[in-house]
Design a protein around this nucleic acid. Structure first.
Lengths: 361, 361
DNA sequence: CGGGAGCGTGAATCTCCAT
DNA sequence: TATGGAGATTCACGCTCCC
């Protein structure tokens, strides 16, 4: 009996497990999956200006329990593993709400993790209540079918050449999807609540697939995977339950102009802005807690604290804030204002920042 | 029966589950855990000739290995949860080999994840074979005892002040432990294979504990947690099975000089400042009854009443309530919203509260 | 057409105390 | 334990509007 043909460059409408069951085994080169994160949000969240955050409260993200989510995860991971070629690999993206469960489940099913890759966001949503760290990253797991998998695609040389001849690392700095790239409906509202940036998908496809490869996305959503696949000369298969999402994705992909064949190489990574905090200078021991800082003319002084704040004896705050306070000004650049007294004279604390930047470069 | 005393600033020699069982419940403020990655897996999955066992087709063997690791993880996480105070939090560090299993297990046990934090290494070990991304990070999970946990320590203001007045993010850039900080034995070889950098522990303790807090490390190893705890004025309890590690850690910690008290006391957060009622401001005559209040743009106004309430002409209520009412909003911080018009411009009523606080200090 | 102020918004498990 | 009120809390961008 003839194997069913692959529905290339197609969006299949339906539940991903049911749709994947119809695909032939060992037929897909790469899978990118952005499953529901199972967020468990309590009430409304408001910004400090009282505006309401548009939360992800869609029905597709609701699960009864962890075990219900685990069963769902296991089911789609099993089907994905079936349709993956022996040389194929899987990427899954998630946040701390779900990624640990996904990772444990895929290990249980025999997948072999190659890397976990951190997507660092240049512009994450801030933490409005100041009770946690700003959630500034998401996690991707890159896995082969099994521990003995050989021959998977990893375009190491191209990635290295595009990264100033440095090895590609497991942490990627990429902005979130916004501006013109973000799909909007006729009402001006976003089409999909969690549209991923094309730059992220581009780096995934350029890292772990070749032109002509078949890329499957079982949670197609607004179709970023399809749009990037088409642009980069890959074939795609999308599965999406929601007809509105699928229609928007189809229109989006049809509007994509594929890159010329010789242009499909890894783009050079953007040079990362080296922002150094004073807390880091203290943390690394370049300036010690308890150190006395003075201004250039010796009129003002302050003491360094272990957490990278400084104190003028009455107020504790940042190097900038305290610099402003002691001068009775609105603002002050603490990096140039404060100095460490030494045997050879005053050393501006900015010089320690330079040292850290040089080290990071 | 009297509760057993806490063995403060002590290294307990033994299995961590057995040793934790001896500690009283709800007695520890912070736990930092650096558990073994693959307790049994590594040995079990390699043949004597070091070739990999075909784990994909040998589900039984694989299940056994992961299952044993999960049981171990569950056991120590349960004990840690027992000894944590209701306001206490847990940090666990791991890599993709184990962190997904640890994360899923701690969620199953009822812990509530606050953040996952990525330790980005400035100088990771390169990937020699060019078949994966350079593994340039490790993952930490920060979790409270449960979803309803309140009152955990997070020194938000200090972290923000030490970070260029920007709120702290979930991705941290810190070098690996090397150079003089790395403990070496008499033979010049490293004492412990996975010694963590003190800068990492310092940021954990400065983020989520206060001076005098009790910090427990159930996998004490070379004692980085204890050394940093001592330096930053925290108490520690370490548990370590290996006597050599424990001895090296003890010597290391004894050589640590604690920071001066001024350098480590937490900066007072605004939310912890003494409460001042607006009625007190009126009572003291800083704002007179009958005074007209306006918002920053002069769009809204209200009149002060002798009892510390204000009125917009139709409704009487607190500065917060009336601020919300005039804007048609759910909530409003009246202290920053309302101003007293003066010859030199608008004076926020918050400044009168500051004056009373300064007077009380 | 340029520049700047102002506004909108993003996968979010986002308070604490007194009664 | 549940409820209600006080009051603390945001960063990077892209877009619109106005001068």
């Amino acid at each position: 009996m003839e194997a069913p043909a692959l529905p290339l460059d197609t969006i299949l409408i339906g539940d991903c497990v049911a749709e994947l069951e119809k695909l032939p085994p060992a037929s897909v080169d790469l899978v990118f999956a952005d499953p529901p994160y199972n967020l468990q949000l309590q009430g409304d969240l408001r910004r400090p200006d009282q505006s309401l955050v548009d939360a992800v409260d869609d029905a597709w993200d609701q699960f009864e329990s962890f075990s219900a989510y685990d069963a769902f995860t296991r089911a789609w991971l099993l089907q994905v593993r079936r349709v993956l070629k022996p040389t194929g690999t899987l990427w899954v993206i998630g946040s701390y709400h779900n990624i640990f469960r996904v990772g444990a489940t895929l290990q249980d099913l025999g997948y072999w993790i190659l890397n976990d890759v951190v997507w660092r966001k240049t512009n994450p949503m801030p933490n409005f209540r100041g009770r946690r760290f700003t959630n500034a990253h998401e996690t991707m797991i890159w896995a082969a079918r099994g521990a003995d998998s050989k021959g998977y695609t990893f375009n190491y040389e191209a990635l290295k050449a595009g990264n100033e001849d440095l090895q590609p690392r497991s942490d990627w700095l990429i902005p979130i999807c916004s501006g013109g790239e973000r799909l909007k409906g006729g009402d001006g509202r976003k089409v999909h609540p969690t549209q991923k940036p094309e730059a992220l998908l581009a780096r995934v496809l350029l890292s772990a697939s070749k032109p002509g490869d078949v890329v499957l996305d079982p949670f197609f959503g607004s179709g970023t995977t399809g749009a990037v696949a088409r642009r980069l000369g890959r074939r795609f298969i999308g599965v999406e339950r929601d007809r509105d999402y699928a229609a928007a994705a189809r229109a989006r992909i049809d509007a994509v102009t594929p890159e010329a064949h010789d242009a499909i190489v890894a783009a050079p990574a953007k040079r990362e802005a080296a922002r150094v905090a004073f807390a880091t200078v203290v943390e690394r021991g370049l300036v010690k807690p308890g150190q006395r800082l003075v201004d250039e003319r010796g009129r003002h002084e302050a003491l360094v604290r272990a957490d990278g704040t400084i104190s003028n004896g009455t107020v504790v705050g940042s190097i900038h804030r305290i610099g402003a306070v002691v001068q009775g000004r609105e603002a002050c650049n603490g990096w140039t204002f404060w100095h460490v007294p030494g045997p050879a004279g005053l050393v501006p604390i900015d010089s320690f920042r330079d040292a850290l930047r040089a080290e990071g470069a």
